[in-house]
């Protein structure tokens, strides 16, 4: 049975097993461990189990895997793909903000059209939809070697197209990532 002192030492045992405990706390824990078989077994487990888990996990991929992963990331960024339009559940938050605004935009458009008819004004012109550029197959090297001035424009445009369209709640969401509050 684990005693009260053992229960209070749980965090310290982790540091002790990792060799991260300094004197005089280390001496105190060491004295307890030498007299307590349960805590001695725990220290042994804290050293052996992580190593055992590391051995049992599947082998690491080779360098080709890591290079392909980097190329995939570079290609996606190079294409200027907005993460808020990728259909993954974790990155759909900005689009929720957009869809919430759709009824209001539709109503505003309807009012504008009706008001235009009433005043016998020419019908408002509907702007053509922007053409989405095709996917590029630029290599990782080309991506990395791109001149800084061009890259600067890309970052700025990404900020314009994504951050500017976010409302306050999404800013909070981003803050939550860094604060760890959303986890």
């Amino acid at each position: 049975m684990i005693g009260l002192r053992c229960a209070r030492l749980r965090a310290a045992l982790v540091d002790f097993a990792d060799g991260n405990l300094e004197d005089p706390a280390r001496v105190s824990v060491e004295r307890h461990v030498s007299a307590c078989p349960d805590c001695a077994a725990t220290v042994l487990a804290l050293r052996e189990v992580p190593a055992e888990l590391g051995r049992r996990i599947r082998p690491e991929p080779d360098e080709r895997f890591w290079a392909a992963q980097r190329r995939g990331i570079a290609d996606t960024i190079g294409r200027g793909v907005r993460t808020d339009v990728v259909t993954h559940p974790a990155i759909r938050r900005p689009t929720v903000v957009f869809w919430r605004a759709v009824p209001a935009l539709a109503a505003a458009a309807l009012i504008a059209v009706l008001a235009g008819d009433w005043m016998s004004a020419p019908a408002p012109q509907i702007a053509a939809r922007p053409v989405v550029s095709g996917t590029s197959d630029e290599s990782l090297a080309a991506f990395v070697e791109e001149p800084a001035t061009v890259a600067s424009v890309d970052v700025a445009s990404l900020e314009d197209t994504t951050l500017a369209s976010m409302d306050e709640s999404f800013e909070d969401t981003l803050a939550g990532y860094s604060d760890g509050n959303l986890i």
Binding site: I73, T83, L163, A175
Partner: peptide, 24 residues
């Protein structure tokens, strides 16, 4: 992992200095 890095790149301007990039 790819999605994580792309998202990090896209929202890098909103990254706050309160945590490390790795933690983020």
């Amino acid at each position: 992992v790819q999605m994580t890095f792309v998202q990090a790149y896209t929202h890098l301007a909103g990254f706050r200095a309160e945590s490390s990039f790795k933690t983020w």
